[in-house]
Amino acid sequence: MEGKQRSNVKFVFLKCGVVSQAKGSAYFEVDNTKLIVSVYDPREIPKKTDYSSKGELFCIFKYAPFSCPNRRAHQPDADEKQHSAIVKRALESAVCRHEFPNFQVDVYILVLENDGSALSGAITAAGIALAQAGIPMYDTITAATLAIQGTTKLLDPTLEEETLCTVATHKSDTEIDYDSHGIIVLAMLSTHEQISEFYQLGNLDLETLNESVNILMNAAKDIVPLVEKCLVDYVTKTLKSNAES
């Protein structure tokens, strides 16, 4: 683990239009992590009495009970609720909310197998699903995860690597200060080069933070051609089948 660096994004598999009942959907796979996202048309916000000029996003992030080494309960726990809020924040700046005032767009994320980097995968896949659903967006959104332990920086960590990097270790036997360690998830809008969500766990010093943000921004940019290709393939396929029918 010491001194290992990984600054290249792992091979990612993306597919959109996987759930026939949903307006937009996407499937994301990297190594062993698999997740599926579906997006539904804007619907009226329940229990809302006043008028607002912006629409709302409603995100639910869920781990399947068999997705983690220990079985998870069906009730959403604190982790899932927090991840739902993070995804919502990340997507809010990418979606043109003024186009559907007083309505809400539902985004449902289900992680089928969790081997690390599920949160960043969910944000990327949700962006694709929203674009496929025809929800107006300002930009394509992509995200990446970086795990840090001391001087080791690993992009797209596996579950084991993520758990190792959340453990605090002292700098040396005599010092009380902790070494830099943690996990950072960064979501970025590619064309406008704006960061829409920055989520950090752990303890980092400024230098490590600067380097990490640069690594993450490059990683997020690397995923953009894959996202674009996925959407273009989908549009081409739909055009062809529309022309045939």
């Binding site: 043109c96 674009a131 107006p136 967006m137 300002y138 930009d139 394509t140 809008l189 590619s190 064309t191 406008h192 996202v227 674009e228 959407l231 273009v232 549009v235 081409t236």
Partner: peptide, 22 residues
């Protein structure tokens, strides 16, 4: 074919943004 966020053209007197653009 275009994706969200793709720059299409310059905004000037002869070009105007319509539906599906900003």
């Amino acid at each position: 074919i275009c994706v969200p966020g793709q720059r299409l053209c310059i905004l000037d007197k002869i070009h105007e943004s319509g539906q599906g653009t900003y």
